[in-house]
């Protein structure tokens, strides 16, 4: 028993350390799509926090299994029984307490704190209206009466907070740009809002994360219900808007 506990502790420490190392050095840099908006930090940080917390929990279970598998194999049913440990002592109480504590931590950080951070009211610099239909997006810039549709591009200025009003004219769809992380369903007859502050220049051509992808099953054209996204400097954005305006007026 004693030796089992020693082995358990060693394996637990090793697994925890190794998985933490993998998480810190590899996952943190490699997992996420391009970080394209300020809000993405909340989400990526939450993801990593959960991963770090999961490592020791993972380690406990793996270590217990490793000990049992290395030291307590048997070749048949007639080699006697294991020890009669019933688990009626205080271990379950401790386990219950510790996992409740862990759960409380996870709920508070990154759960509720992250939620309230994302919920924080922001004053948008720009408002756009994204309207979904089977199977294309229409994005409107109401202040300048510009509209983009289908395979055209959704262009956003860098470092400005954008309010996206999301709605649908037929069935459920969902607004999602992987680089910006947040996702919100487009519900007919209802306007759902998200706030995005793009903080990096990028476009669909070089990066699949810069695409507006419908993320709610909507039938036949669901997969191709996308729109390229381009984030540009503010000046470039203004120029683009002007140019679009003249195109609209020319029509």
């Amino acid at each position: 028993m004693r030796r089992d506990f020693t082995l358990f502790t060693i394996v637990w420490a090793l697994v925890t350390a190794a998985s933490l190392a993998v998480a810190y050095f590899i996952l943190r840099d490699m997992s996420f799509p391009t970080h394209g908006a300020e809000e993405a930090s909340v989400i990526d940080d939450a993801f990593m926090a959960l991963t770090y917390l999961a490592c020791p929990v993972f380690g406990i279970v793996i270590a217990a299994m490793v000990v049992a598998l290395l030291k307590h194999r048997s070749s048949g049913p007639n080699n006697g029984d294991g020890e009669r440990i019933l688990g009626t002592g205080s271990l379950p109480v401790v386990w219950f307490g510790v996992s409740s504590l862990l759960c409380a931590i996870v709920i508070i950080y990154p759960g509720l704190t992250g939620l309230f951070e994302l919920r924080d009211h922001k004053d948008p610099d720009l408002r756009i209206v994204a309207t979904a239909q089977m199977w294309a997006w229409t994005v409107e810039y109401p202040d300048s009466k510009v509209k983009v549709f289908g395979a055209q591009e959704l262009v956003l200025p860098k470092d400005e907070t954008v309010e996206v009003d999301i709605t649908s004219i037929d069935i459920l769809h969902s607004f999602w740009v992987p680089a910006f992380r947040q996702k919100m369903d487009a519900v007919p007859g209802q306007i759902n809002k998200i706030y995005i502050t793009p903080d990096r220049v990028g476009d669909r051509e070089s990066d699949a994360a810069y695409r507006l992808q419908c993320a709610e099953l909507c039938g036949l054209g669901h997969a191709i219900m996308t729109m390229p996204v381009r984030v540009v400097e503010k000046a470039e954005f203004d120029a683009w808007l002007k140019q679009q305006q003249s195109v609209t007026e020319a029509k």
Partner: peptide, 22 residues
């Protein structure tokens, strides 16, 4: 996750110091 965790406790406690017939 709290009650589910208890199930895990049951599982690893059971194989601990047993005679595992694989």
């Amino acid at each position: 996750s709290i009650p589910t965790g208890l199930i895990f406790l049951g599982a690893i406690g059971t194989i601990w110091a047993g005679k595992l017939w694989l």
